[in-house]
Design a protein around this nucleic acid. Structure first.
Lengths: 302, 302
DNA sequence: AGCGGCCACAACGTTCCGTTGTGCGGCTCG
DNA sequence: CGAGCCGCACAACGGAACGTTGTGGCCGCT
């Protein structure tokens, strides 16, 4: 492929061979092999060099695309001067949406999005330089000195129920209304920030939150919820859910106070990546809104 | 690269090897070689299979992009069910703009843009099926029965002069005004539709059009024009020109009548490519406008 | 502690690839 | 019009790369 593009740019096999630091015969064999695998002739050979056929012209932009893709792939793991690498907690959750907004606002900034296991892994990755930023809910006072955090987005939590649930037709509910109801959050791993958040939420309002059982993905969860008259779950307002057909699921806002999930951006102080500053500028910082609730630790000073 | 994606999708080297129809050891060596060339570790090897590292997660979308690019490249030359392949007469000229408009309107339609030598080559390529459509100015009556044409766009011709030209400050000129002036069109190859058009234009209004000399590209032409007090040239209204700094070049509209270049779309009757119909629908057909001039042959019936 | 699953290392044969040497066809210039 | 040149293709050869078989080490599970 590289030989093909080199011949197009050079116009002659010999010149392309010089560019590639191989012999003209090797280029000839590469092009012949490429033409054989594609089943079409890419060049018309003339006495003054090689000219593209129609098929070659059509193939050329795709070949260049391929080489560009290779270049980007290599750049994505090249140490130093690589794309900004950001950890988000699930691609359907709010941080991914926020990051998508940044990408639309600044499409020229190269982004690589990854997902780590938990805050600890994220902090470790930040410290080692393998990622540049992470969206997490953290207790700022527990971060070591070289890791900085900014609370960038408070996401209201909604109640998700099936149509047969007693609260299914409520326009909104208060946290106190939920006492005595079964809140089911399968797949929450103990020790993660999710578990810490829901533990605090349960303790603050006397809720019964069941974190039992491994998660089998969202689809079975939604199926179970849709058919249950007593189970409900929490879901972030910006979480993208896709349910196959309409299962009658309801998203009910929670108010007075509204529990919000405090998404923070954390990064290593002194990280010189230019795009990191752009991202921080784009996100800004939020202060806790009136009528909202977050765990104590989310409001601690850094 | 394919092995990398296969391992990610399968989760285990052995399963990926089965998908690729090679042995587990071969997959192991491929991944090891890839990690060696990239200089980073892509997987963490566990007793239950292979999990992506942070670098692996960042690399993955680029690897998929690369494979998609390869797939598109192969598809661009695969006979049958390939992207719509359209011949345009120069990428800076009006047909390329029109095609760009179609692409913006119907981004899902895959397009390959090529440029052939002249109408004859285009018709031949249409007949042989190596292209699906061509933007050209043709005499419809001279096309064979299985090639169809539709006049899709009339592009007004403008006069391009340097600041020292006698007509430089005119708001507009008539073709009759140009008699006696030197019109210079280097790079026009005799026998092409361009030559036929300007020959007809010269004959109709008694103009002196010089087609001498090979074209050395647009930049030297613009340079010469900018410095000449007597030379001028014609240029299509939609032609994209880029001049380095401001050379004082003037684009002067021609009126009473306005010579227009009759771009036609030509295609082979019976070509079943679905996107060809989409393109024809998008372009529609124009009738010669009042106050315009085209060569006789452009208005002939098919 | 034993076992099974999973990946890495080693040795080997084949295939592929690049190089050197040479041939063929078309353009160009005397 | 023919000699010379230029540009690409074909042939033979050596080495590198790749995939296979066989085997060992590590981890988690029973």
């Amino acid at each position: 492929m590289r030989s093909f593009v080199a011949v197009v740019d050079a116009g002659r096999f010999q010149d392309a061979a010089d560019d590639l630091s191989i012999t003209q015969q090797a280029v000839s064999k590469r092009i012949a092999a490429l033409e054989r695998t594609l089943g079409v002739r890419l060049f018309t050979r003339t006495a003054r060099g090689a000219r593209l056929t129609v098929d070659g012209q059509a193939f050329l932009p795709h070949a260049r695309d391929l080489l560009r893709a290779e270049e980007r792939a290599l750049a994505s793991v090249r140490p130093g001067r690589r794309a900004l690498r950001v950890d988000v907690i699930g691609r359907r959750l709010a941080p991914a949406s926020v990051l998508g907004g940044f990408h639309r606002a600044r499409p020229e900034v190269e982004l690589d999005v990854v997902t780590l296991f938990d805050v600890g892994a994220a902090v470790e990755a930040l410290a080692s330089g393998s990622i540049d930023a992470s969206f997490r809910a953290v207790d700022p006072s527990r971060l070591s000195g070289d890791i900085a955090a900014a609370r960038v987005f408070d996401e209201p939590i909604q109640l998700l129920t099936g149509p047969g649930h007693p609260l299914a037709d409520a326009a909104s509910v208060t946290p106190a209304d939920l006492a005595g109801h079964r809140i089911w959050m399968p797949g929450i791993v103990a020790g993660t920030e999710w578990a810490a958040y829901y533990d605090a939420l349960a303790a603050a309002f006397g809720l019964g939150i069941e974190v039992t059982g491994p998660g089998f993905g969202t689809e079975p969860l939604l199926d179970t919820l849709a058919g249950s008259p007593s189970l409900a779950t929490f879901v972030g307002e910006l979480t993208r859910l896709v349910w196959p057909a309409d299962q009658g699921l309801r998203r009910i806002s929670v108010q007075d106070p509204t529990p919000v999930y405090p998404h923070s951006l954390i990064w290593r102080r002194g990280n010189p990546h230019a795009a990191l500053g752009d991202l921080r500028d784009h996100l800004g910082t939020v202060r806790p809104g009136a009528g909202t609730w977050t765990p104590e630790w989310a409001s601690a000073a850094a």
